[in-house]
Computed example of a mutant assay.
Amino acid sequence: MRFWLGGYTADMGGSASGIGMLLAGAADDASAGGALTFAGEVATTDSPSWLAPHPGSLTVAPGDVVYAALEARQQVQAFRRTGGATFVPLGAPVAAGEAVCHVAVSPDGRFLVASCWGDGRVVRMELDAAGRPSSPVIAPAAVDPYGPDAGSEPVRAGDIDLAAAARALREAAGEEYAHLVPDHDRDEAEGSEGAGDEASLRPSRAHQAAFLPGGLIATTDLGYDVVRFWRDGGRGLRQVQQVALPQGSGPRHMVWHPSGHLYVVTEYSCELFVLAPAADGTWNLIGGTSLGAGTLPGDSAAELAASRDGEFLYAGVRGSNTLATLRVRGAGEYVEPVALVDAGVDWPRHHVVVRDILLVAGQLSNEVASLTLDVRNGVPGRVRHRTEAPSPTCLLPVR
């Protein structure tokens, strides 16, 4: 099986030279369980830290066009496949924003959304019939719900008082599981002296966009602790709602679940939160949990992925270099930690699940490793295969 590899080049302190190719077994294998091999570069470019495929259309075959977030250059570049393992630029790069770190393409291939970590921009770009991006339009800026103008009332996310919810969850969980409930009532007890000064210095940091069913688009802002929901207006994005997560949590990446829930992993607090739509279509924060008791001070969560059947979620944790396994319970509204295991790499920046195999990119150890998932409890086992790969930051399965 083949994967395109995004990575950091010298302009971001990395050792990659562009977009690379990873083989898991033979190139035409349907599974990713075979030996891993870094097969070299398929396109030369500067720090393509995130890759996203064109979904395919009447004029573009699925996967023949790939978009790269050129993080240091603050641009999005499209690449067209010219052979089994070669790409050439498709059109000129398009300006996005400072430290553009993510690209998501609409299911119909009409436009893409770029997220910029450095300046918080969310940018819509039109795609022509060939998949070439153009006409960037910056979406309205996020509003910090914890900023100096937010008021003195307790901030509620989706009409939930997080402090009260934490107390109720801890009481319901009992003494044995109380430590798994996030301590969102601690700030209430300690008071908020000085919070205004700290909040005024918080920067907006957009990090991911996800296309949800029904034409809705969700984006994260880990600087302002919000998830925003949008509709496409044809020439730009129209915000319809903003949901606040706990202050300082840092929502980074999301996974939409077939149950209709949206799971959000937080970079700073190493937690997972559950969002759900109400009958009127508005989204609410309905629950959350830590990634596990083994996370350490200074850890930062990275990617979030789901198992093939949606029963388990996997979050990468940089610092302690672990992978958190969480089980989806109920009708999708509950998520509980199962295990925290060694990721087998240094700085697990990104991972993907292919059937019963989890592949993880170790940005700082310059390698990709594969781990087998236990079919009984969903937990990744020991490293099955590994290969050297230069500063990998993104794994994209080749269609």
Rank of each mutant, 00 (worst) to 15 (best):
H385P: 14
A389M: 11
G319V: 09
V100Y: 04
H253K: 06
L340H: 09
G332E: 03
V105F: 02
L112I: 06
G158A: 07
R384Q: 07
L396F: 07
G147T: 06
P53E: 14
A129F: 14
D197N: 10
V137Q: 07
R132T: 11
C270W: 07
V379I: 15
E367M: 15
R235M: 12
A24Y: 03
I286S: 11
L36M: 08
Y263K: 02
R238T: 08
R349E: 05
G97N: 06
L359H: 04
G20A: 08
M125F: 01
G294N: 12
A189E: 13
A302M: 12
R228W: 01
R132V: 05
G33C: 13
R327C: 06
W117D: 13
L212A: 01
T387V: 13
G214M: 01
L371Y: 05
D11H: 03
V375R: 04
P93L: 09
P53T: 15
D119Q: 07
V76R: 02
F229A: 01
E188R: 15
L358A: 14
A206R: 02
L396R: 09
R231N: 10
W4I: 10
A26M: 11
S307Q: 04
W117K: 10
V240K: 02
Y263N: 08
S290Y: 15
V122G: 00
E303F: 13
P93Q: 05
A389I: 02
T220D: 04
D309V: 06
S192F: 09
L359A: 13
T295E: 13
V122R: 03
G40H: 05
S269T: 14
G248H: 03
L90D: 05
Y67S: 11
L58G: 10
A278I: 02
T82W: 10
S152F: 15
Q242R: 05
G13D: 14
N366D: 13
G84A: 15
S391T: 03
V379W: 04
I138P: 01
L90V: 08
V265H: 00
D356K: 04
R231V: 03
